[in-house]
Design a protein around this nucleic acid. Structure first.
Length: 494
RNA sequence: GAGACGCUAGCUCAGUCGGUAGAGCAACUGCCUUUUAAGCAGUGGGUCCCGAGUUCAAUUCUCGGGCGUCUCACCA
């Protein structure tokens, strides 16, 4: 049992008084809510002139008690409204109840809507029903003229007690409602294009589709190790083979890595696969998804992130990795010898993992020299072939891939390929990748069943992955992934 | 992984050049029938993150630990 603070004891005593002295059930079963606070305020003229009886429910957020008449404010799903609570209007017993109520209690009220002398739209209540008694006090956050006083500001407490944060911190709930709307909008765009939304296994005997350490679990009855997926790719491609010509999934992926401003161990990915398409189709689709969603959510393609003004208006710039290195770092990597690349890496302080691999070296230099300069939306294309085994080489130059990454605000937002569908090539590249486990523990193991699926014949396919959390960060202007995750991963206390 | 910073009342914070601590809000009691960061008067509330060391004495100094925030690095 947690040790009890005095404040909780006092509230428990009040709870008992409400039950025993007033003979009121503090936790009744239901309440007929016919009005939301925001809706009452927007319909004020109608409701006040017709003297309509409104019925609303919400949590008490402020109380101003004055003898025999008082004011308080309740908060419901998307707004607040002031209540005028007078003993003449609700009677002695209800007023005695009101005096025992606290900030944080949930009540139902009925009454008419009027403006007070000070001009604030209020429900002049005639009926008060306690719906739930709070016994653990909430932080009391006050506001005047948009200025917030005594904010619930400790981020650790906010993340560990998100339920409290959602109640008392202005704007938090709105961010998550935006997140919901963003996902809904993205799905709408894909559904309109006849994509099937599917669900694939989270628990997998073999993981793949990315280079990352997995979380490991154990199935007892089967006595096998199962991994939490690190990407959606391997199973979605099996569905393309299976004849679902357009599929997508928005779901959690898990990577056993560090936590920072842009990384959480579990995060939400959108991956989609479209048969008969290539990476240029994926570029067009990416532009459409993000531009349309931005307009649907913010009414504009302009956003502000970490102080940068960014315009998501399409079309976006496209630049090959090698050209980006020329433009942003002054390096002509195509003309550089291996030794020159090695020395550049050394200058950047990178230690080689295993044998020198030219393509990986170029990719590494790109990340360190170019990525943080990519603020406006840009498709970076034609990565070195060695960076992924799952993508088709470009027909013009087999050293590079038909791949792009979308960068916005110096962060990778999307990644897409013309998917590899040559089974001979695929078996070879995946096998070679599995050998890299000797020097790179994040290289995934061989997935024989996946290769057999490709051997069954996969149509030419374009694939696209979008980090949903990062997209939400962009469109809400949040700079930490924790602020767009309802319950970010935290180390437990104690 | 590195560095900086933080942890004191329910919340936001101050403070103690080493002598076990304060404010505002919240809470409690009283007054108040149009308030809105309501007001007025009064009252209570603390393992000062944990442990060790130094000291007559540690919340304060030193060391170690925990947790977090931020920045950097890593994470196709």
């Amino acid at each position: 049992m947690e040790e009890e603070s005095g404040l909780i004891k006092i509230r428990k005593d009040k709870l008992a008084e409400i039950r025993d002295e007033l003979q009121i059930n503090p936790f009744p079963y239901r309440y007929d809510v016919t009005n939301y606070t925001a809706e009452i305020i927007s319909n004020f003229e109608d409701y006040s002139s017709s003297e309509k009886i409104v019925s609303a429910a919400g949590r008490i957020m402020t109380v101003r008690e004055m003898g025999k008449a008082s004011f308080c404010t309740i908060q419901d799903r998307d707004g607040r409204i002031q209540l005028y609570v007078a003993v003449n209007n609700i009677g002695e017993k209800s007023y005695r109840l009101f005096k025992k109520l606290d900030i944080g209690d949930i009540i139902g009220v009925k009454g008419t809507v009027k403006k007070t002398k000070m001009g604030e739209i209020s429900i002049f209540i005639t009926e008060l029903t306690l719906l739930s008694k709070n016994i653990r006090p909430l932080p009391v956050v006050k506001e005047k003229d948009g200025e917030v006083f005594d904010a619930f500001a400790d981020k650790e407490l906010r993340y560990r007690n998100r339920h409290v944060d959602l109640i008392v911190t202005p704007g938090v709930k709105e961010t998550f409602i935006k997140r919901i709307a963003i996902i809904k909008q993205v799905k709408q765009i894909l559904d309109d294009k006849n994509f099937y939304e599917v669900e694939t296994p989270v628990l997998q005997p073999v993981y793949g589709g990315a280079s990352a350490s997995p979380f490991t679990s154990r199935h007892r009855a089967l006595d096998i190790t199962l991994y939490l997926r690190i990407s959606l790719e391997p199973y979605l491609k099996r569905l393309i083979v299976g004849g679902f010509d357009r599929v997508y999934e928005i779901g959690k992926c898990f990577r056993n890595e560090g936590i920072d401003r842009t990384h959480n161990p579990e995060f939400t990915m959108l991956e989609l696969y479209q048969a008969y398409a290539d990476f240029t189709d994926m570029m067009a689709l990416t532009e459409e998804i993000i531009e349309k969603t931005a307009i649907a959510i913010n009414g504009s393609t302009k956003i502000t992130c970490d102080g940068s003004e960014i315009d998501l208006k399409t079309p976006w710039k496209r630049l090959k990795v090698s050209d980006a290195l020329k433009e942003y770092a002054g390096l002509d990597v195509l003309a550089m010898t291996d030794d020159e690349l090695k020395s550049e890496l050394k200058n950047l302080g990178v230690e080689a993992k295993g044998d020198f691999i030219r393509g990986l070296a170029i990719d590494e230099i790109f990340k360190l020299r170019v990525e943080d300069k990519l603020v406006q939306p840009i498709f970076i294309t034609h990565h070195p072939a060695e960076t992924t085994p799952l993508c088709k080489p470009d027909y013009e130059d087999q050293r590079f891939l038909q791949r792009f990454e979308l960068f916005i605000n110096a962060t990778e937002i999307a990644n897409a390929y013309s998917e590899s569908n040559d089974p001979i090539f695929q078996r070879k590249t995946l096998y070679e990748q599995s050998l890299r486990r000797a020097v790179d523990e994040e290289a995934p193991p061989m997935d024989e069943n996946f290769v057999q699926a490709i051997e069954a014949g996969m149509p030419p396919t374009g694939g696209l992955g979008i980090g949903i959390d990062r997209l939400v960060m962009l469109l809400t202007g949040e700079s930490s992934i924790r602020d767009v995750l309802l319950f970010p991963t935290m180390r437990p206390q104690d």
